[in-house]
């Protein structure tokens, strides 16, 4: 209970801060996504504020994951997928041919629905990103990055004695925090999370949520979630999707107390979805 009050206090403080600092980190401008001839997303305009948690909610198949994946061009890997409209990161069009997708994904990291650590050691899992991006000059620096990333993902204390054991041997919640540590290790500016807690039990979920709350001090976070409570707990801004359209977007508190759209109200009160 003590924890809860602390967190809600922190959240309240954070919300106040956010009203002061409210620059836009990423911006979607009439974003449409097509899978072959099927359109999955229709002209979505959505701003992602810096150093805040933005939650994308909506029933299954509403296009929220599609929108998330278009933010770091993971959709490029799907055959027949086409993105129209404009998405910017710090004002730069990320679909500009001059933009290097490798660099983009280093700036916009991703955490997936199912924990997917590499079948390597815990250390190697975290060290891989910094290595391929040349973030460290020597082994010592990599050691430092690994430790600080694991600390930020509040996993270090649990795994410090077995850094060189398989990452796949951890529990589900630990694996997911390892994946978050892995994403943090390349120093991204934005972290995309695609239902990061849907494969976890409530205790592991609480830990990951706590972590997300801490991470927003330093990172811009976009999270897709099916859990209304989770969206309410961790996010400052919420966007509601339905059938490929953005229904409503606003401050989380507003969305959950006084939604403007009937569809939003129906969804968050559990009348459909």
């Amino acid at each position: 209970m003590n924890l809860m009050t602390e967190r809600s206090l922190e959240k309240a403080v954070g919300d106040k801060m956010n009203t002061v600092v409210n620059t836009t980190k990423m911006k979607g401008d009439k974003v449409s996504v097509f899978y072959g001839s099927k359109q999955a997303l229709f002209d979505v305009d959505l701003d992602i504020p810096e150093k805040m948690v933005t939650a994308l909610i909506g029933p299954s198949g509403c296009g929220k994951s599609t929108f998330l994946r278009s933010l770091n061009r993971m959709n490029d890997t799907i055959e027949g997928c086409r993105v129209a409209g404009k998405i910017t990161l710090d004002g730069e069009d990320i679909y500009d041919p001059k933009i290097d997708v490798v660099e983009l994904r280093a700036r916009v990291g991703m955490v997936f629905q199912k924990p997917n650590p590499f079948p390597k050691t815990i250390y190697e899992n975290v060290a891989y990103g910094p290595r391929i991006h040349g973030l460290a000059k020597n082994r010592h620096e990599i050691d430092e990055i690994v430790e600080s990333s694991l600390r930020r993902a509040s996993l270090f204390e649990e795994v410090k004695d077995r850094l060189h054991e398989a990452g796949t041997g951890l529990s589900g919640g630990q694996q997911q925090r390892l994946c978050i540590a892995r994403a943090i290790a390349v120093s991204p500016e934005v972290i995309l999370m695609d239902e990061p807690c849907s494969a976890l039990d409530p205790i592991a979920t609480a830990k990951v949520e706590e972590l997300i709350d801490e991470l927003r001090q330093n990172y811009t976070i976009v999270i897709v979630t099916h859990s209304m409570q989770q969206a309410a707990r961790v996010s400052q801004k919420t966007a509601m999707f339905h059938l490929g359209n953005l229904v409503e977007v606003g401050d989380t508190e507003m969305m959950f107390t006084t939604p403007k759209e009937k569809r939003t109200q129906d969804y968050i009160t559990g009348r459909f979805g």
Binding site: M74, T77, V102, F112, K114, N116, A183
Partner: peptide, 27 residues
């Protein structure tokens, strides 16, 4: 090789060739 491993590598900013040679091929 599970697609999640490929997604993890690409999501970290590995190029396709790095993904193949660092992760997919060893598995």
């Amino acid at each position: 090789v599970p697609p999640s491993i490929r997604a993890a590598a690409l999501g970290l900013g590995a190029s396709k060739t790095q993904m193949v040679f660092h992760h997919v091929l060893p598995l």
